[in-house]
Write a protein that binds this DNA or RNA. Structure first.
Lengths: 221, 221
DNA sequence: GAAGTGAATTCTGAATTCATTATTCAGTCA
DNA sequence: TGACTGAATAATGAATTCAGAATTCACTTC
C-alpha cells in the first residue's frame, strides 16, 4: 500500500526543478566558475523553454551562485579565498545563533536526538566511514537549526550554505582535523544538554571557523 | 559640466525596477499583509507585461516579502510578532559581526567619519529633528557595514533589513528610547575608535535587540 | 599586413499567445 | 431550502514570438 497520505498532488513548479538542477550542476563543477551560461543550450538540455529557465537563473543569482550581467547573460561566480572568508564569517555567526537559540528552546527530545547522533558521529569516525560521517554531520547541523525554531535563521543559513557547499565538496578532511571536529561536536552536544546558550554559541561559531581553516589549509597544498 | 564619467550607459532591467516599486509599495502599506497579489492589475498599473512582473515577484518571494502559492498567485506575507523576533534575532548577530569586523578592518578615515556622524546624530537628537536623526542613523549603520568590508554580510543584512523596515515604518520612537539609542551609538563609536572588536560586537547586537524591544513596546500600546 | 568599419549573426529582454489549473456561479436534485 | 454537479470564467504556468543589444567576421583602407 502507498503509505503516503493523498493530499494535494505534487506539481513542483518547473522553475524550481530547474534551479535545483542548476545548483547541483554548479556544486558538481559541471558548470565551472567563470563560465558563461548561455540560455539556449540549457533549454535544449532540460527540454524547457527560456521563460522558466530565466526565472531559475534569477533565483540562483539572488543566491550568489551566478551573476547576471545586463544584456550579456550569466556568469558562474568565481569562488575566491576572500569570498570563502566572507561566507564562512557570516555562516559562523548564524550557526552560533542557532546554537544559542537551540540551547534555550530545544525540547528534551530534540536534545536526546542530537546527542544520539553525536555518538553515531563518533562511531563513524572510529570506523573511518566518511560517507556516514558526512551524512550524520549534516543531519546534526540541520537538527540544531530546527531546534532553534527560527525559520528566518534557517532560510538565511540555507542560502549561504549553498555557497559554502561548493568549497566543502573539494575539501579533504585530514585525520587530525577529523578527530578535532568530532570532539567539537561532542562539546556542542554537551553545551546543549547543559543548556548553556553562551557556550554553545561560541562552540558552534568556532566549529565553523575551524572548518574554514581546514578547507583553506587543504587548498594551499 | 557633467561630472559623471561617461562609462556604460545605465539600462536597468525592467524586472529590477518593478521589484523596487513593489517593495516600496509593501513598505508603505499600499499592498497590505495577507492581501492577494493579482498579476493583471499590476501589469496595467505599471504598464509592463507579465514576464518581467513575474520575475520581480520571484525576487520578492525569495526576500520573504511575499509568498508564492503554486497556481494560486502571490500573497503578501503577514508580519507576526514571532516573525519580527526571528528577523531581529538574525539581524542582531549580523550587525554584531559587522561591528566586530569593522573594529578590526576599518580605516582611520572610516572611523573618523563614523564618529563625526555620531556627533551629528547627537545634535539631531538635541534638536529633536526626527527626519535628520533617521537619515543619519541609517547612514551610520551603512557605514559600519561597509567598513566591515564583507560583501556577503552586507547583502545578507540588506535582505533581512527589508523585512525589518516594514516594522520600523510603524515604530514610534519614545523620548526615553531615543535618548538611550543615542548613547548606544556613542558607545559603539567609542568601541570602534578603541578597536575593541568584542565590545563593539556586543554593543551592536544589543543596540538592535533594544530597538526590537522598543518596537514591540510601541505596538502593545 | 594590420587596424577600423559595418553588415550579419547570435544572444538577451520583453510582449504575446497558448495551455492548464482554480474559482465562480447557475442549475439540478434530494 | 441546501448541497452537489458541471459549465463558464479568470487566474497562473509555460512556450513562442518579437525587439533590441552585443558579438563576430568579412571587407575595406591605409
Amino acid at each position: 500500500m502507498n503509505s503516503k497520505i493523498p493530499g494535494p498532488i505534487e506539481r513542483t513548479a518547473l522553475a524550481v526543478e530547474i534551479s535545483n538542477h542548476l545548483r547541483q550542476m554548479i556544486f558538481e563543477g559541471v558548470l565551472e566558475p567563470g563560465e558563461k551560461v548561455r540560455e539556449k543550450p540549457l533549454t535544449e538540455k532540460f527540454g524547457v523553454s527560456r521563460t522558466p529557465l530565466r526565472e531559475a537563473l534569477k533565483v540562483l543569482a539572488s543566491e550568489g551562485l551566478l551573476e547576471l550581467i545586463p544584456n550579456r547573460g550569466a556568469v558562474i561566480t568565481r569562488q575566491s579565498a576572500d569570498e570563502l572568508d566572507e561566507v564562512f564569517s557570516v555562516l559562523a555567526v548564524l550557526e552560533g545563533l542557532a546554537g544559542e537559540l537551540a540551547a534555550k528552546a530545544a525540547s528534551d527530545k530534540d536534545l536526546a536526538r542530537i546527542s544520539k547522533m553525536t555518538r553515531e558521529l563518533r562511531q563513524s569516525f572510529e570506523d573511518a566511514d566518511r560517507p556516514t560521517y558526512f551524512r550524520i554531520n549534516q543531519a546534526i547541523h540541520k537538527a540544531i537549526l530546527e531546534a532553534a525554531s527560527n525559520d528566518t535563521l534557517t532560510r538565511t543559513h540555507e542560502l549561504l550554505a549553498y555557497r559554502a557547499q561548493r568549497a566543502r565538496y573539494q575539501a579533504n578532511l585530514t585525520a587530525e582535523r577529523w578527530r578535532v571536529a568530532v570532539e567539537e561536536h561532542e562539546a556542542i552536544a554537551g553545551a546543549l544538554e547543559a543548556r548553556d546558550a553562551a557556550r554553545c554559541a561560541a562552540l558552534m561559531r568556532a566549529h565553523l571557523l575551524n572548518k574554514l581553516a581546514s578547507i583553506k589549509a587543504a587548498a594551499k597544498v
